[in-house]
């Protein structure tokens, strides 16, 4: 695609080199992320670390491993909500759950789980539907800080009102307040909700399949990837799903550019839920 572009701008060259350096040194691979968002976030990082250029930031990143964790905070977007897009969770509850009930045990993968909002949402939904006991949720992300927060399950109390409303709109059968205790430190979610959750570090770019899932929920992660990378991740989902397994994406993500789209059928088009076709 570079043929019709003018000579690369200096900062674009520097960004490519910086991403290459981060990959070679730390194995975090952002090289094929959609660049517009990465660039905006690296501008913020460059200013935060008081570097005049991305080359200086690269120098810092290579020689001071301590800043990597902070840099990851810039390179990954941690915006999330419990029961985000309530209609998605409603569709899972009303349309996917009846299928899930037919299995003796359930494996669910939340890929790109951020600080756990989506994981706790699904855990609550499964409990409400009486499926929790037979389910195992695998929650993965590349950001260790986010995974740590997810495991802690503490969310700031000023977010609870939104979460409560979302939960209700998603068809919640209980009160969200049944699941947390609020104090000055925030809302601590019931630790038993994560007794069936396994948090782990996993990259959709560089890591391998997870076996025989019944449901994979990967929301608002693929938009940060370019088309090829989206395809890699979708291939990974296809290979990780069991027969007739379900895949749920974010409200602005779809399989339409994917070469793997043939392996899936639309299950709930508006909610971006897909079902893997039987082999």
């Amino acid at each position: 695609m570079t043929d019709d572009l003018p000579v690369a701008k200096t900062d674009d060259i520097e960004i490519r080199l910086l991403l290459e350096a981060i990959f070679r040194k730390y194995h975090y691979d952002f090289r094929n992320y959609a660049i517009a968002s990465i660039k905006r976030r690296l501008v913020q990082a460059r200013d935060h670390f008081r570097c005049a250029t991305f080359s200086q930031l690269q120098d810092k990143a290579l020689h001071d491993p301590a800043i990597l964790r902070e840099l990851l905070g810039f390179l990954t977007v941690q915006v999330s909500e419990m029961f985000r897009d309530p209609s998605y969770f409603k569709a899972i509850r009303e349309k996917v759950v009846p299928h899930l009930r037919t299995y003796p045990s359930l494996k669910i993968w939340v890929a790109g789980c951020s600080s756990g909002e989506e994981v706790y949402s699904l855990a609550i939904l499964l409990r409400e539907e009486g499926l929790e006991e037979k389910a195992m949720i695998y929650a993965t992300d590349i950001n260790p800080e986010a995974l740590r927060k997810a495991e802690a399950g503490i969310f700031s109390t000023d977010r609870i009102q939104q979460f409560t409303q979302n939960h209700r709109l998603s068809g919640g059968k209980s009160s969200l307040s049944d699941y947390y205790t609020a104090d000055y430190g925030g809302a601590q979610f019931d630790k038993t909700l994560r007794s069936r959750v396994l948090f782990s570090d996993h990259s959709l770019v560089t890591d391998a399949v997870f076996g025989e899932m019944h449901l994979i929920s990967c929301r608002n992660v693929l938009i940060y990837f370019d088309r090829d990378l989206q395809d890699r991740a979708i291939g990974l989902f296809r290979d990780s799903l069991g027969r007739k397994g379900f895949l749920g994406l974010g409200s602005k993500e779809s399989l339409r550019f994917s070469k793997h789209s043939d392996a899936f059928a639309d299950f709930s088009r508006d909610e971006r839920l897909y079902q893997k076709l039987g082999a």
Binding site: L5, A34, A36, V77, I223
Partner: peptide
């Protein structure tokens, strides 16, 4: 709403910019 150097659209959930998502500045700058 963002424009990639390949002249494709990319959407993002990044934080609101000056309280706006979508942000005009983000579209214009990209």
């Amino acid at each position: 709403l963002q424009v990639e150097p390949t002249h494709e659209i990319s959407l993002s959930n990044d934080e609101a910019v000056m309280f706006s998502r979508p942000s005009i500045d983000v579209l214009f700058e990209t």
